[in-house]
Amino acid sequence: MHSRDSQLNNARVVNHTMTIIIWSVALSTMLLPLSIISDVFIKGLAHLNWSFLTEIPKNSGREGGISSLFISNSLILIVCLAVVIPIGITTALYLNERVSPNDKVDKWIQISLDVLAGVPSIIFGLFGYVFFCQILGLGFSILSGGLSLACMVLPLFIRLCENNLKNSPASYREAAEALNISHTGFIIKVLLPSVAEGIGAAVVVVMGRALAETAVLIFTAGYALRYPNSLFDSGRSLSIHIYDLAMNVPGGMPAASATAIVLFLLLIILNALVRFSCRRL
């Protein structure tokens, strides 16, 4: 009787200890992003005001705002997504609809996607510099930057879309088959709408990656602080601006933090927008 009681006691002690350990681990993982965010807000909030959003940078970014960078970054993102979304979805459709799982083409595409997804972003930067800037003669430009970014995020986007398509209910395909719906009709009217929410989520992930990227853009989109005149003009992204202010500009930390807050809020807004619009489909 006595030994049973002590066993129960031991179990209780172990139980409590484990609970405490797991809670503290969970809390500390939450603390890390929270501390980063609060650090950025503490340092940058004072610098953030309306003119910061509407003026162009002055004095290497220590003063003025980020409006021109905002435009440059938006253009880079638009170029990137305009390439990634159509190519990514069609490739994922090809893999899902045309290639059987044991096919050699499928195997090679999967392997190259895995390899590409693991390549460090600086390599994509160098590739973009050589291929887009020099060989294609696009120079340091928003176009070069957007296209290089597209190369970097494409493998990830294809993977995410492919997983979504694989998870689309088989019952839709059965119904379409029994009704003898054309393959194109099925893809456009049934399959893609049924995975729209998942593809929206994939777009959000990819946008996050693209907005956070610096290494690729340093070599391809350049540093220019002015408003871009066209897609062939150089333009600095927000993340490069943060990097530059923090590393190369003495006294640039408050502006860097304020830019980080803007980038952070931008990501949240874009995330909400994409999810909302895909849910309505």
Binding site: Y172, E174, A175, I181, G185, K189, V190
Partner: peptide, 23 residues
């Protein structure tokens, strides 16, 4: 053919009937 569990397409009631006809 009609299946074990109902499998209407993820579209409006009207399109569920009209889309196959259009196709």
């Amino acid at each position: 053919m009609v299946f074990q569990s109902p499998n209407p397409f993820p579209m409006s009631v009207k399109d569920n009937i009209c889309f196959p006809l259009k196709d």
